[in-house]
Amino acid sequence: MKKKPRRMSEIPTSSMADIAFLLLIFFLVTTVIDVDTGIGMVLPPPLDEEQNPPPVLERNMLKILVNEQGQLLMEDKPASVDMVKEEVKKHVLNMGADPNYSDSPTKALISIKNARQTPYRAYIAVLDRTWMAYFEIWDSEARKLGYTDYKTYVDALAPEATNEIRKKFPAAISIAEPDPQ
């Protein structure tokens, strides 16, 4: 009797790498590793019809108006986007020195008002410069406390601890509703 020839009982593994490569390439192509970045804001809760917005002293409010062409009016004077950052810093860090600027950083308010036809990019440009001003203020405050920048200060904070810098310099940015036409 002839013995049956022994079958190869192993799976050929030489093509395994190729198969894995194919899958790898598929996932490489479909992967999107992008973290969402953007400018964070918190909207005010809806106001009741009869309730008036809280009064703000005129000097504490830095009014920025953006018109249909994306041109700026800062405190009723024409301005360019590049001036926004310096003006905001001056306004916030005034400490009551100049009567045209704010009393104190906690009372300072930046009001951005748009027309309905204002291009979105013009609005974002102004908002971005305003936030940059605050970021730079926070950074310099953190350096005074001995940290390299504001981010390391926040990272070093205990979870329950209050953010003292943020408390001293709250970024009060208000987006005013446009005038009804």
């Binding site: 969402d36 909207l43 748009n114 309905r116 291009p119 979105y120 908002l127 971005d128």
Partner: peptide, 30 residues
């Protein structure tokens, strides 16, 4: 939001978000 959009529609949407109670927003930018 597309950068060439007008603020009118953005403000309308924001107004609705306030009414809906979703107050934390993020303007997505590069």
């Amino acid at each position: 939001v597309d950068e060439s959009s007008e603020m009118g529609i953005v403000q309308d949407v924001e107004h609705e978000l306030r009414e809906g109670g979703t107050l934390r927003i993020n303007y997505s930018t590069k």
